[in-house]
C-alpha cells in the first residue's frame, strides 16, 4: 500500500538556517531518506517552497481565475511530502516518525487510492 506523509509546520517553527541545529535538522532529513531507500519503502519525496511562492487557480464558469497565495491561510502549511510503499499503517507511521519536522510540526499520513479502492 502507498501512503503519503504530508509534512505540515508553521513557517517560522524549527531551527533557523545557518545554526548548528539547522545542520542537524537537514542531516535528519538526509538520513531518513537514506533509510527509506535502504528499506525499499521510498517512492517519492520532496520539499516545497514557502506559500509566498504559491499560486492558486480555479475554473469557474469556464473562466480561469489565477491568484497569489495558498488555497487557505492556515497556521501550519504544507512544506513537503514523502510517498512510502508499506505493508500497513503501522509501518508507514514508523517511517513518518523519522521525519525531523515531526518535532516541530505535524505529519499527516494518508493512504493513496489504489485501483482496488475504486472497485469497493
Amino acid at each position: 500500500m502507498q501512503y503519503m506523509a504530508l509534512i505540515y509546520s508553521a513557517p517560522n517553527a524549527g531551527p533557523k538556517p545557518g545554526t548548528p541545529e539547522f545542520e542537524a535538522f537537514m542531516k535528519g532529513y538526509f538520513d531518513a531518506t537514506e533509510t527509506y531507500k535502504k528499506d525499499g519503502v521510498f517512492v517519492a519525496g520532496d520539499a516545497l517552497h514557502g506559500t509566498d511562492q504559491s499560486t492558486s487557480l480555479r475554473i469557474r464558469g469556464g473562466k480561469t481565475e489565477t491568484m497569489d497565495g495558498p488555497f487557505a491561510e492556515t497556521k501550519e502549511v504544507l512544506g513537503g511530502f514523502y510517498i512510502f510503499d508499506c505493508k500497513d499503517l503501522d509501518e508507514a507511521l514508523k517511517y513518518a516518525a523519522m521525519i525531523p519536522t515531526a518535532e516541530y510540526g505535524t505529519i499527516e499520513v494518508r493512504p493513496v487510492l489504489s485501483p482496488d479502492d475504486y472497485s469497493n
Binding site: M1, Y3, C86, K87, D88, L89, D90, L93, K94, N120
Partner: peptide
C-alpha cells in the same frame, strides 16, 4: 481499518 491499512497485528516493541 480496511482503507487506511490499520494492521491486524500485535505491535512490535517500538510501538
Amino acid at each position: 481499518i480496511s482503507r487506511a491499512g490499520i494492521p491486524f497485528a500485535v505491535p512490535g516493541p517500538d510501538q
